[in-house]
Nucleic acid binder design. Sequence first.
DNA 1: CGTGCGATGTAATATTGTATCGTGCGAGGA
DNA 2: TCCTCGCACGATACAATATTACATCGCACG
Lengths: 156, 156
Amino acid sequence: MGRHDHHLHAGDALTEAARQRLTTKGEQWTGMRAAVFDALAGFDTPASAYDIAEAVSKAQGRRVAANSVYRILDLFVSANLAMRIESANAYVANSHPGCLHDCIFLICDTCGQITHIDDDRLTSGVREAASAAGFTPVRPVIEVKGSCADCAGTAA
Amino acid sequence: MGRHDHHLHAGDALTEAARQRLTTKGEQWTGMRAAVFDALAGFDTPASAYDIAEAVSKAQGRRVAANSVYRILDLFVSANLAMRIESANAYVANSHPGCLHDCIFLICDTCGQITHIDDDRLTSGVREAASAAGFTPVRPVIEVKGSCADCAGTAA
DNA sequence: CGTGCGATGTAATATTGTATCGTGCGAGGA
DNA sequence: TCCTCGCACGATACAATATTACATCGCACG
């Protein structure tokens, strides 16, 4: 689809890429952060901070508080390791942490699955439209709610 | 900016337009709905359901529960009398209820003010991109966080 | 007069997000 | 070695947002 190489990662490779990126930015890659990242990457739909707290709690056999998860998610978002889906109050791991994009998310109302597409022509168009209106864009949020290919048939 | 006539409404005229639109759709225009609409239209920044509940409570001299407000806001959104700002968990009145648009919201992180622009070229581009990915778009959410013209200077 | 239905009220609860303060631990200096 | 300083994390409380279940009210209709 896109023209450039995204270095898609999965599993351990993804975790490793995340670690690299975080340490490169001068942040620590702690056990807790690794656990949160693994939990996040383990979901196949966007996960709320509480979902993640629960997953990490289970994985570690001890209770992990939501606010710790929030802290780490905020860090991840700022480091581009994860993205927040505003219309779902949830988070997804970024499968190509090295690339900076204004992502476009497609969110299936039926199954909750999300896919993300990159279209710099569109996103820069949005930024330009904002600028033209005298606004200084910082973070575009472009999300489309609807039905994914799988659910489009199912849900009449 | 836009090419077509938006029939911008304000104050009583806006309320009246809202009433018209709702009744046209076979819904009732009740006192409660009018009160919620007035409260919503009275805010100059997006208002949360609880903000509105409080405003209506004050106006009516009695306690109005959040869930009544949510019900009515949902109705308003579905009738295009109001729009939900996903990234702010809040609502704004639609000043041109007659027109259907995929709106683009510009949300100032500093003052909370929002402006909305219509750019069918962009929004249809987003819909097309989603369709091209095998996705059936229902409701695009396009919001840009940043600084409005007034705040851009202030907040260095 | 019932009866049904849409709108609203009441209450409880679930979910999401923040604030505050304490604790442990490692890096680096006296 | 010991100190202490900052960072990550824990614990707790709380605030804000959203939903659920059920009761009630009033009105149109037979």
